[in-house]
Amino acid sequence: MCGRVMAARFQYCRKYKQMSALRIALLTLLTMIAFAGNSVLCRIALKQTSIDAATFTSIRLVSGAVVLFSIATLLRTGRSGRGNWPSAFALFAYAAGFSFAYLSLSAATGALLLFGAVQATMIGHGIWSGERLRTQQLTGLVFALGGLVGLMLPGLSAPPLFGAVLMLAAGIAWGIYSLRGRESGDPTLVTSGNFMRSTVFALVLSLLLNSTANFDMVGAGFAIASGALASGLGYAIWYSVLPSLKATNAATIQLSVPVIAALGGIIFLGEVVTMRFALASVAILGGIALVILSKRQDER
């Protein structure tokens, strides 16, 4: 009798763990789709509607702040977290550069440049802080940087230079924001505070560019979806599953974002993936994966 009870409990625990693992996997996939969705939504809004990039940025950040504040208020974890102005400015710089870059870049190219710049900033900070890279990691870094350079080289399929530079700047800003985001406290509250502060910078930008501003209802809808769903809700879900993921696994999973964005661009925007983009993607994502996986081996 006792053996049967123990066996039943074992089966229940095993089934519960499997369900929990499935839930984490589904939520993680949903988050990656949301992050990639930012690129697709922004590109659709700026290409197919008449909304301007500054207005899109303001609406995105305001709607993201509202959703994150609402979620943080409802959850009430009891932990503290407020955010700060330097992080808020980095968040704004990312969002503004992101929007203006997508005036000329495809969803896939923009996502790849952004991700590459973010990871290069994070890795560069580690090197600056005294982290030593193994031969395997250096090889991966060379591949990734070579992919970025190859993507940017002049040619018929090269992305517009100004848009590419803006997206790289946005990626550096997001990398800085991520590095600064390691402060203690509830991550949803911290992000909510940073989003709320970033709206001040976004509204100032909109005022400065008021002469070229153009409000479009459909475009505003895409901006709200980007801020409220892809950003606000996306970050909230990500922070809920992050404790269940190892740091290395979390970094590796994010390699899927440019790929998902490329698929979204093909499906919703009719974008074509060029051979240059495909080769650059393999070099950049493969190189970053090599750095991340090598770092995991060091941590064992």
Rank of each mutant, 00 (worst) to 15 (best):
V67C: 08
A53K: 01
C42I: 08
A72L: 13
S50Q: 15
I59G: 11
I44T: 12
G97I: 14
C13Q: 13
A45Q: 08
S39L: 07
L68H: 02
Y16C: 01
F89G: 12
P86K: 12
S87G: 15
R23K: 07
A72G: 11
F100A: 10
G64R: 12
Y16S: 05
A95R: 02
T28Q: 00
F98P: 13
V67F: 07
S39A: 13
A45T: 03
L41K: 10
A65N: 03
S50N: 15
A90E: 06
A90N: 04
S50M: 10
A88Q: 12
F56C: 09
A34G: 03
T57H: 04
T55H: 06
A101N: 14
L26A: 03
S50I: 06
G97E: 12
S87E: 10
A45W: 10
S70A: 15
I51V: 13
T57L: 05
Q11D: 15
L68Q: 07
G97T: 14
L27P: 00
C13Y: 07
L29Q: 00
W85H: 02
A54V: 09
A21Q: 05
S50F: 06
R82S: 14
S63L: 08
V40T: 08
A36F: 04
R60Q: 05
D52P: 05
Y16A: 05
S87T: 10
Y102I: 02
T28P: 00
F56W: 07
I51P: 10
F92D: 12
A101E: 08
I24S: 03
A88W: 09
S58H: 09
A34T: 06
L30W: 01
A96M: 14
S99A: 15
V66C: 02
I59D: 12
M32Q: 13
Y102G: 02
Y102V: 04
I33Q: 03
S80N: 09
S39T: 02
P86I: 14
F69A: 14
I44G: 09
G78N: 13
W85R: 11
G64A: 11
A72M: 08
T77P: 11
A93K: 14
I33N: 01
L27I: 01
A95Q: 15
Y12F: 09
K47H: 02
A101K: 14
M19I: 01
I44K: 07
S99E: 09
G81D: 13
A25Q: 04
V62K: 04
L91E: 10
K47N: 00
S58G: 11
I51F: 06
K17A: 10
L22A: 06
R60G: 02
F98L: 13
R23E: 02
S80R: 12
Q11G: 00
A53F: 04
Q11I: 00
A101D: 15
L29N: 04
A72H: 12
R76I: 03
L27K: 00
S99Q: 13
G37C: 10
T49L: 07
R79K: 15
S80Q: 14
A34E: 03
R79S: 15
G37L: 05
T49A: 11
R14I: 06
T55C: 07
I51E: 13
A53D: 07
N38F: 00
G37W: 00
G64W: 02
R43V: 02
L29T: 07
